[in-house]
Design a protein around this nucleic acid. Sequence first.
RNA 1: GGGGGCAUAGCUCAGUUGGUUCAGAGCAUCUGCCUUACAAGCAGAGGGUCACAGGUUCGAAUCCUGUUGCCCCCACCA
Length: 881
Amino acid sequence: MQLSKTYNPAEVEDKWYKYWMDNGYFHADANSNKPKYSIVIPPPNVTGVLHMGHMLNNTIQDILTRRARMQGKEACWVPGTDHASIATEAKVVKMLKEQGINKTDIGREKFLEHAWVWKEKYGGIILDQLKKLGASCDWERTRFTMEPKLSEAVIQVFVDLYEKGLIYRGERMVNWDPSAKTSVSDEEVIHKDVQSKLYYINYKIAGEDGHITIATTRPETLLGDSAVCVNPNDERYAYLKGKKVIVPVANRQVPVIFDEYVDIEFGTGCLKVTPAHDINDFELGKKHSLETIDIFNEDGTIAPIAGHYVGMDRFAVRKQIVKDLEEIGLIEKIEDIKNSVGYSERTDAVIEPRLSKQWFVDMKKIIDKNPKVLQAVMDDEIKFHPAKFKTTYKQWVENIREWCISRQLWWGQRIPAWYAPDGSFVVAATEQEAIQKFQISNFKFEMGELKQDEDVVDTWFSSWLWPISVFDGFENPNNPDIKAFYPTDDLVTGPDIIFFWVLRMVMAGYEYRGEKPFKNVYFTGIVRDKQRRKMSKQLGNSPDPLELINQFGADGVRMGILLSSSAGNDILFDESQVEQGRNFCNKIWNAYRLVKGWEIVEDSAVDTEIVKANQLASKWFASKLNEGLKEIEEKFADYRLSEALMAIYKLVWDDYCAWYLEMVKPEYGKPINRSAFDATIAHFSDLLKIVHPFMPFITEELFHDLNDGNPAKPIIVEDYPKVQQGVEAVPSLAIDFITEMRNLRNSKGLSPKEEIKTALVCENETTAAVYSSFEYIIRKLANTPAVEILAEKPEGALQLLVKNDALYVFLEESIDPETEREKISEEIKYLQGFLKSVDAKLSNQKFVANAKGDIVERERQKKADAEAKLRLLNDNLLALS
RNA sequence: GGGGGCAUAGCUCAGUUGGUUCAGAGCAUCUGCCUUACAAGCAGAGGGUCACAGGUUCGAAUCCUGUUGCCCCCACCA
């Protein structure tokens, strides 16, 4: 194959993805006798499109999966999507609206039909996008949280928890999303500080001339007022005891009540009480037996009971009522105030506290039943990376509250509660079971009167079962899949859903399998732009990942996003990193292009000196590679993937391309000897394997070409290189020397073509032998006609520096003594200072007495080394003058 | 109001229980090179009072206290 000058990702990516798919390399078999490795994907919303957060998250999962697969494990990465009740329902409602269809007009069944059509049409987009990224998911296992089996699991668990007394129904003040017309959990409410106004409104005292002034940010709710409250210790208002005030506009009389809840300092110290529309007021109302007047419809418009502004939206009413109050002179003043307002995470609507009947899970009881939920994380049985998130987790566990799981939506699993006409209910999976249960409990019960609860369960109620349900662990707790792949190995997710998802999965894991759901949790950061702003559609600062892939290639994007993402830190995404990724692909590509272009001859046809030098170069690289592998292993063990990648990057770019290839590269037009060529290819092949989990496409492409298009195994299932024991460490002394030569050349403005005569003075025989073995390589890379390795410094030679047990000596007269003197003097100065500090330490009794281990010995050695060096430098200074 | 985290080179980050040349890496910058794989490249260089102030210690980027600045979570504000 003719290779182009640069790597062209577009030509190869689709080809290899299809190849991997067609050959079933992504599929994991539960019955295989290999050790198992599994990850379940954090299911993206069906409504979603791929964003940079997904890119990061799934790149990491793919790296872990591919590496495990190459390490001979049966690697199973389960993909899937989440039905995302609110988000999807909102999307479908909007779509229908555009067609002039109203959700309530067509009814539940018809609406769900539309929703499923929508899901079939758009729900797979995000998964297709993952394929572009190279994700090696087992697509045969693709699951959807609302598919029949997973829905059955949800119902099964609901019924089970109800029967265990862990699910109950209750009337509560809940967070109401008037836009989605459903309750949402506390955790789905985002509090934002906003600039708003504090209105001071006068309420007339009934039967008297006076008035009192209350302060409120929500004047529209006064229609639902059922009292005014002051602090009993507030002497200003003691005279109000037993009196009533008149609610403006509504013209209702309400009592003045006294409660220490009221903050004397805030506003006027006088609070209007609206039990239906504020959680604290609700509590006050209960305590003082106040009337609850719910003035809102479920969409946030004013209900008939309010008597005024009926049908108007709450925010329009706020404006209007202020205007009306001003007209009748009851607005005392208006102040600017900063306060926090709750917004719905899904729809961004302002949350309205609302009294309603909902279903709850008793989370505290589940945790009390399963102490492992906390223990396992604290004891690292479930390991968090980074560990700092253990604290967050612990806080959540310790402050756990009941979980409101009912949602007033249609898209989702319908709550399996069945009601008789008298309002009594049973919880059962099917209508038939419900009938049976009713018959046992109530013999008067007649068939055909049952009504199922209208609500569905919170989406997270299916998510928390995900690691079990994707392996059909509820349908059959002993099936081969769940036995093989549960508990999963790694979970890759964001710290923002530690409570929503991670904790709940752990709870479900222990409750339903008596076992943790995963062994490791890798927390990725939030992807931000260069200015640290969160990437969002509104800001338009999120690049389209597919666009990036088109431009830089999937491998380049994968590398770019990973480079600066140490675990748990936010990722500051910068396109230049993706560029670096692309450049790295190109480097690998061109290294291969170079090697491929070489003409090969037998070893006997090449100078022995060269053959030997090439062998040495290969040995040197082999030792570098082995060291690199060791480091990479360690980084992976700590889940420091970006550092592992950096180690790989340096191994390829610096050690292999910049040094090794330059060492063995034949002179222009000359052939390379066979053994050197084979070694070069073998090293390259190892590197490709190490790179593959990070950059799957280019490595598969080159691995095939390397093996004439027909490797024994494609790289995706090749054996990942292992750290070798007993690899001879070859010192990099020659590298340092060559670098110094180049340095000198640079500082003198000499061209690389200009030869410099050099010598090394080396008293130590072992070191001398190493230098000597590298002589050919030094001559070649430093472009010097000869390197003499001498036991002592020749007359008249100029020394450059002392390093690695040797003197680097230049025989060339072109060296300027003055500059060299300066250099040496500077170094002497530094060494003297250094020695002073070492001496200070060593003459310090306390140091000698207290320093542990061999610290003191090391200091002595340092001193001796420095002194020796200093002597040499002084000698040289003399020689120069 | 409660809790947690962070502060190291221009940028993004490493720095494992205090102790070898510990003050590092990548990118960016600067200098010189189109040297026959790659200018998406090659060869080099410069750059930091480790936020600030105290303390512990023979010894502190590392441990303690305080200050300042930033971030996150929870609770809550009429």
